[in-house]
């Protein structure tokens, strides 16, 4: 399967600066992400000062999921993380390639369920903290295994 995108020539005044290009990219099972290549041919007149700085449209995939194979989108149910800005119904972009450091918001396995909490690793041990005073922290006892499923990289809320 191929993704193709036509780039059309740009007009500056009456001078055509860019030439049309078709960019082909073999998508070996990768999410559709456009790759833009630019080339310019100056027919006449002054070169555009922007010519060397064209970057193409913003690519949300590249921004939200730098590790596409390791990135999952999940939906939140519950209100224990509201003070971290995570509300019921939000989408979370979870990056499983990212290291889980103390202070990170993580998806962890608690009682066989996927749970989102803030990870705290300190002298007093490991805790999963809610961001809502109504919920007590989950203390990870010694000799018990804590599975961090992934690190929350972004939250998406639609209005």
């Amino acid at each position: 399967m191929y993704d193709t995108e036509q780039l059309f020539s740009m007009k500056a005044g009456t001078t055509t600066l860019g030439i049309a290009e078709t960019v082909w990219r073999v998508a070996v099972g990768q999410p559709r992400r456009m790759l833009r290549l630019f080339s310019s041919r100056i027919a006449a007149g002054f070169p555009s000062p922007a010519d060397d700085h064209l970057e193409g449209p913003l690519d949300l995939n590249a921004y939200l999921a730098p590790h596409p194979a390791a990135t999952f989108v999940v939906r939140v149910t519950g209100d224990s993380m509201v003070r971290a800005g995570i509300r019921d119904g939000d989408l979370l972009v979870v990056d499983r390639a990212r290291e889980a450091a103390s202070g990170a918001i993580v998806v962890a396995v608690v009682d066989g369920e996927l749970t989102v909490k803030r990870l705290r690793v300190g002298r007093e041990g490991i805790r999963l903290e809610a961001e809502n005073p109504a919920y007590p922290p989950i203390v990870v006892h010694e000799h018990t295994e804590l599975v961090i499923w992934g690190v929350v990289a972004h939250a998406i809320r639609s209005y």
């Binding site: 999952f72 999940v74 939906r75 939140v76 149910t77 209100d79 989408l91 998806v107 996927l114 809610a130």
Partner: peptide, 13 residues
């Protein structure tokens, strides 16, 4: 269904 917006896996908060 990790590829379907309508049936994404759920995490508990």
């Amino acid at each position: 269904r990790p590829t379907d917006w309508a049936h994404l896996p759920v995490v508990h908060a």
